[in-house]
């Protein structure tokens, strides 16, 4: 069922809940239960701050099915302040060009509408974060 497929990821999609390895302190996003660094069990939940910077990015003009109405959109790999990289769309870009290194913060947005029932799927995107 597509509904449950997305529902079970709500903690990740809405609040960047990953894991921290109790053995080596490695922070994991997405959660994966086995630490890729030390190979031990890593099931302690860890909520990421949502702050990070752009590792790389591109603009999508030829979208896969389900994303056509968003074209053009910007996708990035974001390096979270706690370490992990995460793939996410950038949003609220305004006039200032994105660059590698641009500081960003997580926001919740509509990702796509799904299937015949038109279910809306929400989740994380990132927007430029300017020093307050």
């Amino acid at each position: 069922m597509e509904v449950s497929r997305h529902w079970r990821l709500n903690k990740q999609r809405y609040s960047l809940v990953g894991e921290v390895c109790p053995h080596c302190e490695h922070k994991l996003f997405p959660p994966r239960d086995i630490c890729p660094d030390c190979g031990e069990d890593a099931r302690d939940l860890f909520e990421f701050s949502g702050k990070g910077s752009v590792y790389s990015f591109t603009t999508v003009s030829q979208a896969p099915a389900g994303f056509e109405e968003s074209v053009p959109y910007t996708v990035a790999i974001v390096q979270l302040d706690e370490g992990p990289l995460v793939t996410a769309q950038l949003t609220d870009l305004g006039d200032k060009p994105v660059e590698i290194g641009t500081p960003v913060e997580m926001v919740t947005r509509k990702l796509r509408s799904d299937g015949d029932q038109g279910m809306l799927i929400y989740g994380y995107k990132f927007r430029p974060a300017f020093a307050a």
Partner: peptide, 17 residues
């Protein structure tokens, strides 16, 4: 995939980096 990427998107991000 849920972020609307394709292999082309991935390659583009690797190439820029």
């Amino acid at each position: 995939g849920i972020q609307g990427i394709t292999p082309t998107t991935q390659a583009a991000m690797l190439m820029r980096r």
